[in-house]
Design a protein around this nucleic acid. Structure first.
Lengths: 217, 217
DNA sequence: TAGATTGTTAATCGATTAACAATC
DNA sequence: TAGATTGTTAATCGATTAACAATC
C-alpha cells in the first residue's frame, strides 16, 4: 500500500467521511450510494468515488457502499483500529481541556501522561493522570511507549521542547503552539493554530460586511 | 474591493504571512524580499507575490516589501484592526480554555460573555466574565453587540444551539462541535474539528510505520 | 545608470468534475 | 435480464510555478 502518494486534499476529507458514516451507522443505515452520500455531505458523488478508490474498491456496482464495512475500512486507513499512546506537554488550560476530553480515548488515543514545568501543578490529577514535571520525561519515555505528544505550550518554549521530545524518540507532534516546528523528516507534525482559524473567521466576517455595505450604496 | 473572489487557499495562508511578518518586526527587520521570505517560510517566492497581489501592490520593485507596512496591511485584510466581540457558548474545559486565552484580546477578539446550561457553573468568574445561563442570552444579545460566538458544546446540543444563536442575530460561529452546522448563507462558520486533526495525524503515523516496515523487509 | 525585485502574464501541474463502460 | 451504481478514464477547472517585462 503506497499510501504516501495520496494527496493531502484526500486525507483532509477522510475523517469527515468517517464521521458521516458513523452517524449513518447509528441511524441503522445499512447501505448508501455515492449519490445519497453526496447530497448529505454536499460534495460531488464523483469526488466520493474518486477519494475512496485511492484505497481500493469498497463499493459494489448496482448496490453502493455497505455502511458498517466502509466505516471500518476508513477507520483502518486512519489507524483508528490501533491504540495510540499520547502525552500532553503543557498542563495549562488547553492541555487540561485535551486531557479531560473523553472522546479521544474512544477512538484509540489514550492519554498516558501530562507534563509541565510549573511545580505548582505537580501531582494534580486529571482523569487519573497526575501532572508530572518535564524532567521526569526522559525516564518516562524509556518505560512507556508513546507515539504522540500534544504540544500545548506558549510559543517561547515550544521550539526547544519539540527538539527535546524528538531527541527522546517522539515521532509525532500535535502542535498547538503558534509557530512552525522544525523537526527531522521522519517526525510528523499536525498543526492546530487556533489564532489562525480565528483570523480566517474574522476575514470572512469582514468580507460579508463590505459586500453588504456595497449593496446598500 | 471584491474580496469575495479570492480563493480559500490564499486566505488559509494569510494568517501565516501575518505571523512571520510579526516575528520579523519583533526582530527589527525593516524590509524583506519575496525571495528571503520564501526561504524562511518554505513556500515559493512566486506564491508570495501572487498571494499578496490579490490585495494590491504592497511591494516596491528593487526594494522588496516594507515589513511593518505589509504587517499592518495584512492585519487590515484579516480585520484585525477592528475589535470583535465574542461570546463563548459552553463553559466546559475547552470553553474555559478559550476564555482564559489572553492572546485573542491582543488581536482584537474580546470575550464579552460565557454561557452554559449547567446551573452548577453559574456565576463562576473567568478572567472577569461570570458564566451566565443560556436563557439570559437573548436579553444579553439585545444589549451587547456581539459578532462571534464560539461553540464549544457536545455534539448533541450543538445544532439546536446554533439555530438559537442565528435566530438571535449571531453572524459568525467558531464551531468546535463535531458536526457540520446548517446555517443561512449570510452566517459564517469556521470549523475547528480537533478529532479530525488527530485522525490526520494518526493517518500519517500509520503511513510512516508501514513505509518504514516496508523498507526493512 | 545598473541592479534588484516586484507585478503580472504564460506554462505547468494537480485536483475536481463529468462521462461511461464494467459489473453487480 | 434490466436497472442501478460503481470504478475509472477523459475533460475541465483552478492553483501553483516559472518567466520576464516594468520599474524602483
Amino acid at each position: 500500500m503506497d499510501q504516501k502518494s495520496i494527496s493531502k486534499a484526500v486525507i483532509r476529507r477522510l475523517p469527515r467521511y468517517y464521521r458521516y458514516l458513523g452517524e449513518l451507522m447509528e441511524e441503522g443505515v445499512e447501505r448508501i450510494s455515492s449519490n445519497e452520500l453526496s447530497e448529505k455531505m454536499r460534495v460531488t458523488a464523483s469526488q466520493i468515488r474518486q477519494d475512496l478508490n485511492n484505497f481500493g474498491g469498497f463499493g459494489q456496482q448496482g448496490y453502493g457502499y455497505n455502511v458498517p464495512y466502509l466505516y471500518t475500512e476508513i477507520g483502518k486507513i486512519l489507524g483508528l483500529d490501533k491504540t495510540h499512546h499520547m502525552i500532553i506537554i503543557g498542563a495549562g488550560n488547553l492541555g487540561q481541556a485535551l486531557a479531560n476530553y473523553v472522546k479521544f480515548e474512544k477512538r484509540g488515543f489514550k492519554i498516558v501522561g501530562i507534563f509541565d514545568v510549573n511545580p505548582v501543578l505537580k501531582g494534580i490529577s486529571i482523569r487519573g493522570n497526575q501532572i508530572r514535571m518535564m524532567d521526569e520525561l526522559p525516564e518516562f519515555l524509556k518505560e512507556q511507549e508513546v507515539q504522540i505528544a500534544a504540544l500545548t505550550l506558549p510559543k517561547g518554549n515550544a521550539a526547544e521542547t519539540a527538539d527535546f521530545l524528538v531527541q527522546h524518540g517522539i515521532k509525532a507532534i500535535w502542535n498547538f503552539a503558534h509557530l512552525d516546528l522544525d523537526v527531522p523528516e521522519d517526525v510528523i507534525v499536525e498543526n492546530v493554530h487556533l489564532s489562525e482559524s480565528l483570523m480566517r473567521l474574522s476575514y470572512n466576517l469582514n468580507c460579508y460586511v463590505t459586500e453588504h455595505q456595497k449593496n446598500e450604496d
